[in-house]
């Protein structure tokens, strides 16, 4: 009558260990953040730094509270631009990557071009986009797409090319045809790498939206930062930057969540 006890206690201790790991994974970064904010606050008080240069965290927080509905609106605008551009980049990038991975000729034609386009500093294009498309939503989305497109294409091509030869031979030996092979083998195999590309792209997407707002906009967190600079309202700028960071982090983890639930096998496999 010893076995049932042993059989029960093993998974319980494993679960307890997992909970402990999870607490660490969240708790430790939060602890570090709290320490940095405390140091920041201490520094502003101890060295008596003027608030228009570096406002203390208390000022930033009170700014957020005072202007909460305004800032929420601006956060929504920037998030909308980011998500729309990111979604469009996926819709464009994955088919392009599929054609590049499939057709050698297209690869030879398009790949150098893509590399060249990617080498252009996107900030340099931003003012021209304003000339072409004005101050609306369009130039922001285009900017986001420009930044996201390349990492998505690159990762997808790499993923689609990484199908192990034995799986290719297997589906050939079943005379499956290219479409079934793609749907059942190549594409699912590429997904973990596609997600690497998506996670790179999402951080760039936020940057793209902010750049586009810097050059020509009347709303969004990028616009808030530009305006606060003009009126030396540094606390407001810090509040906007904090919100941008939060957007970035939330979107990143949202993608990671989708990845984990969609590809539970991937983590163990690679």
């Amino acid at each position: 009558m010893v076995t049932p006890v042993a059989a029960e206690s093993a998974p319980t201790s494993a679960r307890r260990r997992r909970t402990r790991e999870r607490i660490r994974a969240f708790g430790l970064p939060i602890l570090a953040l709290a320490m940095i904010v405390a140091l920041w606050w201490l520094a502003t008080v101890l060295f008596n730094i003027p608030t228009y240069l570096v406002p203390g965290p208390d000022l930033v927080v009170s700014k957020m509270i005072d202007l909460n509905s305004y800032l929420a609106e601006q956060t929504f605008v920037t998030t909308k631009e980011t998500v729309l551009g990111f979604g469009l980049a996926i819709l464009l990038g994955i088919p392009v990557a599929m054609s590049i991975a499939r057709f050698r000729l297209l690869e030879q034609m398009l790949y150098p071009l893509l590399l060249a386009v990617n080498a252009v500093p996107k900030v340099a294009i931003a003012p021209i986009l304003v000339v072409w498309m004005g101050f609306g939503l369009a130039p922001k989305i285009v900017m986001v797409v420009l930044l996201c497109f390349f990492p998505i294409v690159l990762a997808t091509v790499a993923g689609l090319r990484s199908t192990p030869s034995e799986l290719v031979e297997l589906s050939q030996s079943l005379d499956a045809g290219e479409i079934k092979e793609f749907v059942k083998v190549r594409f699912p195999w590429a997904l973990p790498q596609i997600f690497v590309g998506l996670k790179t792209a999402i951080s760039l997407a936020v940057i793209g939206a902010v750049i586009a707002e810097f050059v020509g906009s009347s709303e969004g967190l990028g616009y808030v930062i530009v305006q606060s600079g003009a009126s030396a309202d540094t606390a407001l700028a810090f509040a906007a930057i904090t919100l941008l960071a939060i957007i970035s982090i939330v979107l990143f983890y949202a993608i990671q969540l989708v990845e984990r639930s969609l590809l539970p096998w991937a983590e163990e496999n690679r």
């Binding site: 034995e166 297997l170 030996s173 079943l174 005379d175 079934k180 059942k184």
Partner: peptide, 25 residues
């Protein structure tokens, strides 16, 4: 054909891997 490597699809469980040829064919 059975290969040197198992050539299983890592996202499919045993049953679904076994049924892969049925789907492919």
């Amino acid at each position: 054909v059975m290969f040197q490597r198992p050539a299983l699809l890592p996202w499919r469980n045993v049953r679904k891997n076994v049924l892969l040829p049925v789907e492919m064919l």
